Amino acid sequence: MTHSENVTPLKIADAARAIRHVFVRDLSLEAHIGVYAHEHGRTQPIRVNVDLTVSEAAHSDKLANVVCYETVVNEIKALVAAGHLNLVETLAEQIATQCLADPRVIVARIRVEKLAAIPEAASVGVEIERAK
């Protein structure tokens, strides 16, 4: 079973409420993260998933009128590159805060997984949901 098979898909997009679902799936990065001494001074693989509930507007086929997933990814990369974090919870909160800074984002669901922390597990981590 892959990690995706054990996660229930979200129904976020909603025509009646003019809601769009913007997402980033399985963003793989190397991060300086962890509380233990053996986790300091080196990177380890993480996977980030982002689900955003976004209020729709007429986008006129212009990138400036939508929540851009490339911008979301670049912001996550910048957070990861900023330096060592002890907890995946901290990174998840930082990502949620960054996403919610866009006035069009109503809800941010963030999952951060460490892929090599527990040898017997495919991944361990945290998923949070934050709303305005």
Rank of each mutant, 00 (worst) to 15 (best):
M1L: 13
M1S: 13
T2E: 14
S4Q: 11
T8E: 12
P9L: 03
L10R: 15
L10M: 12
K11C: 11
A13Q: 05
D14F: 04
D14H: 05
A15L: 13
R17E: 13
R17M: 09
A18Y: 10
I19H: 07
R20N: 13
F23P: 04
V24N: 00
V24E: 02
L29F: 07
E30M: 10
G34H: 01
A37S: 15
H38Y: 06
E39C: 14
H40E: 10
G41W: 03
G41A: 10
R42Q: 14
I46K: 06
I46Q: 05
R47K: 10
N49G: 09
T53F: 01
T53W: 05
S55D: 12
A58P: 14
S60N: 12
K62S: 11
A64G: 08
V67S: 09
V67G: 08
E70R: 11
E70I: 11
E70N: 13
T71Y: 02
V72H: 06
V73D: 01
V73I: 12
E75I: 01
E75C: 08
I76V: 15
A78K: 13
L79S: 03
A81M: 02
A82V: 05
G83R: 08
H84G: 12
H84S: 10
H84E: 05
N86A: 14
N86Q: 15
E89H: 00
E93R: 13
Q94F: 00
I95Q: 04
I95K: 07
L100H: 10
P103Y: 08
R104G: 00
V107E: 15
V107T: 15
A108L: 05
I110R: 02
A117D: 12
A121T: 00
A122F: 05
S123H: 08
S123R: 06
S123E: 08
V124H: 04
G125D: 01
G125S: 06
V126C: 10
E127K: 02
I128G: 01
E129G: 07
E129F: 00
E129I: 09
K132I: 11
